[in-house]
């Protein structure tokens, strides 16, 4: 009995393979906030296991773009297909996509009234209908992986920023996602805590997780990204491998941006 549960647990911890080779496909995506044309002509194809880093000045639409992938933002033209499911107004499909797409936010968005463990087990229990005991095992597995199992019974407010962000990553992983979205995960952290979060993300990348990261950590981009995307004024301006992108930027805007952030 015990071994059966253990086998079941370890089986559920293996990343579910994506259905096809294409994880995310955005075709001719446009979005407006009122009159403001915030995303323009976004075309992007992310294949399975790819790591994409997205950078650009603030207000360039990078966060909005990845938030469209799990429908936290709605697009008004074009199509977005995530793991074979096209995002429309159909709530069932949106829920289906959200179950399989994890997201990590700049401000963590942990639930302050729940303990770390409860934060991690909430979605598996209520969305995946996992038994509580198994959900706790899974949660402890991922909390151990982000190196904070001893904090499981504390509340988010008692943890440092870096620890909270690692909990947020673990919370997403507990849903066993196929794709992970990161929206400036280190921007709100004290300098001393950036590394612990980046190390966790590098670990994920090494295991073959499909990742889209909005970040200005260029060291991280060089280390793990397959492609770097530069956005400005709602458009993808330049997209290249990290080596080419940093060594040999083509567009004037990219050159200017890189000269500002790389000293």
């Amino acid at each position: 009995m015990a071994t059966a549960t253990a086998a079941q647990t370890s089986a559920s911890l293996k990343p579910t393979p994506l259905k096809g080779e294409v994880a995310v496909e955005m075709i001719d995506v446009h979005k407006w906030y009122g009159e403001f044309h915030v995303l323009r002509d976004i075309n992007l194809k992310v294949t399975r296991g790819e790591r994409i880093v997205i950078c650009g000045p603030s207000g360039s639409g990078k966060s909005t773009m990845i938030r469209c992938i799990n429908r936290l933002e709605e697009h008004q033209r074009g199509s977005i297909v995530v793991d074979g499911i096209e995002l429309t107004n159909d709530l069932k499909r949106i829920d289906e996509v959200r179950r399989d797409v994890g997201m990590v936010f700049q401000h963590f968005n942990l639930f302050p009234h729940l303990t770390i463990l409860e934060n991690c087990t909430l979605a598996p229990i209520w969305v995946r209908k996992m038994p509580k005991k198994q959900a706790e095992e899974v949660a402890m597995h991922y909390l151990t992986r982000v190196k904070i199992p001893e904090q499981a019974n504390k509340y988010p407010g008692q943890l440092s920023g870096g620890q909270q962000q690692r909990v947020a990553i673990a919370r997403s992983l507990c849903m066993n996602p196929k794709i992970m979205l990161f929206d400036e995960p280190t921007s709100a952290l004290d300098p001393e805590m950036v590394k612990e979060v980046l190390d966790t993300m590098v670990g994920l990348a090494e295991e073959g997780m499909t990742m889209l990261c909005v970040t200005h950590e260029m060291g991280f981009a060089r280390q793990v990204a397959n492609r770097v995307i530069f956005m400005d004024a709602g458009q993808i301006v330049e997209m290249n491998t990290p080596n080419e992108f940093f060594a040999n930027p083509q567009h004037e805007r990219t050159k200017l941006f890189l000269s500002q952030i790389l000293h």
Binding site: L72, D95, R98, F111, A123, M175
Partner: peptide, 8 residues
């Protein structure tokens, strides 16, 4: 957003 991103 945190709750929605988890599929709740």
């Amino acid at each position: 957003e945190g709750a929605m991103s988890l599929g709740l």
